[in-house]
Every structure is written in C-alpha cells, then in structure tokens.
C-alpha cells in the first residue's frame, strides 16, 4: 500500500493544545502467515475524547486497538501511549497496560474469582494497594455500574450484560488514562446492550478517554467526538459523527453505512 492510498491526515481535535493520549504513527502489522492486516494506520486520540472505530469484519479494527496495549505486536511504525513508546521493552509494555483499560467482546471475567475479587485483583497485585482500599474503590465502581449488590457472586451466575459491566468496573479499578472497548456489546442479547451502553455513556460524560470498536450507531452518534472507518487494514475516513453518518466523505464509507443503517 503506497503513501497516497493511506488515510486522510489526522484531524487535530478542536480544543487547542489538548494532550494526545494515544499517538499511532504509520502502524504496519503482518500476521505470522504473512497477511498484511494493518497497512500504515495513523491515529491520535486526545485526552477526554471518545473515538468510535467502525468497519466491516476483517478490516483490522480490533487488531488495531489491541496494539494500543500490546496484546498484538506490530512490526513497523510507532505507538505511544501517554508518551511511552510500545516496543519490545517488557517494562514499558507493562507500564502501558497499567494505564490502558480494555473491555473485551467476550467479557473475559475470571470465572474462578468472585465479582469483587475480579475487580480488586489488579489493584492489589499490580498497584500494590492494601486490600481494604482496593475493596472500597471496587465497591464504589460496582455501585457506579449498578451491580454492587452482586459483589460476592461468581461471574458464571450473572447475565451477559452484568458480566460486561463487571468487566468495565474491573478495568476502571486500575484508574486507567484511556479505555479501549473491543465490540463490548456484540456478544450480548439485545435487551442487555442498553445497560452496557448506558454505563459507557456515563463514563464518557465523566470525561474518560475512550476508543470503542462498536457497531452501535446510536451510541456513536450520541457519544463519539469522532468516528473512524477502517477497511482492509486502512483508515478510510475520520469525521465527526454528524458528518460521518449523514454526509460521509468517502465512497467506501457510504457503502459501509448503506449496509448497516
């Protein structure tokens, strides 16, 4: 893929001088089988911003946000999280992971731990907080996502929506600078999507920096500061949600929107 085919240059955020939390420059990634999954993707995410990443399946959007906490390595380009370059240094990667929360499509709660233990695990073992402090903060977070009364249940005893809310609380417990959401509602029954989106909406309202891979158009319209379309490993379009959904610049975006709207 040549330079000219690459995505439009990054549009700086409206607020002048806003600090970039994620700076991804020309990121290239090949899978082990040689498939070129990310073809020179660049994107900045600024503090307090909510970026929604959309795109057809196989477009590399999940892979892209998974490079932000080094769950996926990349081969060329650079990604800096809050000024720390993600490269091969294990210490840097661990430092980045402490500051980046991630919510998965399949929740990935720890089934052998109670809800409260799920949330306090990382603060106790990584942040080295005393148990009492970790539990107090965890209970506050569980309260915030509306499941404080289920703190002593195991994940296997809860509905998908509840599990996903626990997963959000678990990530928030580390007090991350940025939250990544990898299709957080795709594995949920329709009636549970709303409870999870509500939590995410509140989170955005509180000023959390968020990058969400999602197909929830309503959520993107309402909450996102910016919508990004990826296709074939390339960032096709970056736009404001209003512009993106009503008047997309790129032909590829129009085709995509005509399929999902």
């Amino acid at each position: 893929m040549t330079q000219s085919e690459m995505a439009a240059p990054v549009t700086p955020r409206n607020e002048v001088g806003a600090e970039a939390v994620i700076v991804a420059k020309d990121v290239n990634k090949w899978y082990d089988n040689g498939f070129h999954v990310l073809k020179g993707v660049s994107m900045n995410v600024y503090k307090g911003e909510v970026v929604v990443v959309m795109g057809p399946s196989g477009s590399g959007k999940s892979t892209f946000i998974r490079t932000f906490n080094a769950l996926e390595p990349y081969q060329e380009g650079s990604i800096e999280i809050d000024g720390v370059l993600i490269a091969n240094d294990l210490k840097d990667i661990e430092a980045v992971r402490r500051e980046v929360g991630m919510v998965f499509q399949q929740f990935n709660l720890f089934p052998h731990l109670t809800v409260l233990q799920n949330v306090t695990l990382a603060p106790i073992w990584v942040r080295r907080w005393p148990k009492a402090k970790a539990e107090e903060i965890a209970m506050r977070l569980l309260d915030r996502v509306g499941i404080a009364e289920q703190a002593y249940k195991f994940p296997g005893q809860m509905s998908g929506g509840q599990q996903q809310r626990v997963a959000i609380a678990r990530s928030l417990a580390m007090q991350p600078k940025v939250m990544l959401f990898d299709e957080p509602t795709s594995a949920l029954d329709p009636e549970m999507v709303r409870e999870v989106l509500d939590v995410m909406r509140n989170l955005a309202k509180d000023g959390m920096t968020m990058v969400c891979v999602t197909h929830e158009v309503g959520f993107a319209r309402e909450v996102a500061d910016r919508v990004v379309l990826m296709d074939g490993g390339v960032l096709v379009e970056e736009n404001t949600p209003d512009e993106f959904f009503s008047n997309p610049k790129e032909e590829r975006s129009q085709a995509f929107l005509s399929q999902i709207l």
Partner: peptide, 27 residues
C-alpha cells in the same frame, strides 16, 4: 483455559508470572 483469560489479565497490567499463577493455573 481460553486465550481471553490471559489477555484480560495482561491488559490489567499483570505480568506473565502473576497471570500464570493467579489466573491461568488455578483454572
């Protein structure tokens, strides 16, 4: 043990030994 378990643990900042001993091995 599903891959997602260690991914979730690592994304919380747990290093490899902690991920193994607290999350993967017990399961």
């Amino acid at each position: 043990v599903p891959q997602g378990q260690s991914e979730a643990a690592q994304s919380l900042g747990l290093n490899k030994p902690l991920t193994m001993s607290l999350i993967v091995l017990p399961q």
